[in-house]
Design a protein around this nucleic acid. Sequence first.
DNA 1: AAGTAGAATGAACACTGTTCATTAACAGGG
DNA 2: CCCTGTTAATGAACAGTGTTCATTCTACTT
Lengths: 199, 199
Amino acid sequence: MARGQKIDHQELHTTILNVATQIIKDEGMKCLSIRKIAKKIGCAVGTLYNVFNSIDDIFLSINVATMTRLHKQLQQEAQGEPDPLAAMILLGRGYVAFSRDNYHLWSLLVDHKMQLGRTLPENVQGKIDDLFLLVSGMVAPLVSNDREKADQAAKVLWASLHGVCSLAMSGKLDTVKAEAADVLAESLVRNYLLGLQVK
Amino acid sequence: MARGQKIDHQELHTTILNVATQIIKDEGMKCLSIRKIAKKIGCAVGTLYNVFNSIDDIFLSINVATMTRLHKQLQQEAQGEPDPLAAMILLGRGYVAFSRDNYHLWSLLVDHKMQLGRTLPENVQGKIDDLFLLVSGMVAPLVSNDREKADQAAKVLWASLHGVCSLAMSGKLDTVKAEAADVLAESLVRNYLLGLQVK
DNA sequence: AAGTAGAATGAACACTGTTCATTAACAGGG
DNA sequence: CCCTGTTAATGAACAGTGTTCATTCTACTT
C-alpha cells in the first residue's frame, strides 16, 4: 500500500476484521497476531493502529459480531415454540450447537478478558444485555412474569449453559464429549425450571 | 547461584512453585513470566528449564495444588451435613467462596488451556476426577443412588457452578457482583436438584 | 506551483518463551 | 593432590509478541 494513499477507512476496518476473523476461525485466537493480519492484508503493522487502538479492540469487535450472530441464531431456534419450557430447552440446545459449530470464535468470546481495572466497552456490554434479555423474556412466563425472579433465573441459566459448554469444549468434563453437551444442557434447563415451579 | 553448584533439585522445584504462585496471587497469570521468576529467585532463566519443561508445566503444577486445596475445602464445607440437598448447597457456596477468595489462582485453573492437540497430564485429570467424584457422591442419595443419573447430575452441577463463578467474576453478568454469585449458586443447586426429583 | 494535512510506513523498543554452547563446580580415581 | 569426567547453572541468542513514532509520501487546498 503506497504511502499517503488515502484508502476507504471503513473498508480497511472491515477488511481487518474479516481477515482476523478468518485467522481465528482457522487457527484460534492464540495464532492471531498483528503482524499476521498485516501480512495477509499486505500493509504495515502501523496501519492497523490507525484503525484500531490495540489488538484487544480487534478482539472485542469480533466478539460483538459473534454475539450478534449468536443472538440471531438463538432467536430463530426458539421462535415459534409456544411452550416456554420447550422453547427454553431449544435455546439451550441452540447455544450448545453454536459453541460447537463456532469453536474458535466462541472460545474467543468466553476467554477474552479485559485487563485488570478496565471495564467492557458499552457496545459489548449492550450485546451481553441483549442476550440476557432474550433469556429473561423466555423465562418470565414460567415464573408468573415476576421480573425479579425471571432475571435471577436467566442469570443462572445463562451462566450455567456457559459453564456446560465451556467444560465440555475443553475436555474437562472427563468422558463428556461435545456431542453429549446438549444432553447436559437439556437436563440443566429442564430440571432447573421444573425446580423453580415446585410449589 | 554459582555455576555447577549442586543444589537440592526438589528444593528448587518447590521454590519455583512458591515464587510463581505468589506472583500469580498478587498479579495474575498474565504477569507471570519465566524471567520474573528467575529474577525473584536469583537464578538464570535456563535453570528453570532444568526443573520444568516449559512454563505450561509450571502452570499445571500450580493448578494441581489449587485443585487439591479446593477439594479439601469443599470436603470440609459439606461434611457433617446429613441432608444431601443442604450439603450440596453448602458445597456450591463453598465453591463460590473459593473462587472469590482465590481469584487469580482460580482464574488460572479455569483459563489455562492445553495447546491444541495436547491432552491433560494424568495427574491433572486425576484431580479433576477427584472433584467430580466428590460431587457425584453427594448427589447420589438424591437420585436413588442411580450411578448414571448421579454422574450426569454431577456433571451438570459442576459445570454450571463453574459457569456462574466464571461469569460473575469477569463481570459479564451485568449487575451481578461477586457477592451475589452465591445466591445464584444456591438457586442453581436447589432448583436443579428439586427438578430432578419431580415425579 | 507551493504548501499543508493526513495516513501508510517500518524500524525500534521492551517484552515473551525457549534453546544450547559455554563454563564453573563438584565427585571419584590414580 | 591433581586430573578428569559428569553435571548443571548460565545467559546470550533466536524467533516471536504488542506497541510507538519519526519519517515519508500522496492527495488535496490555496
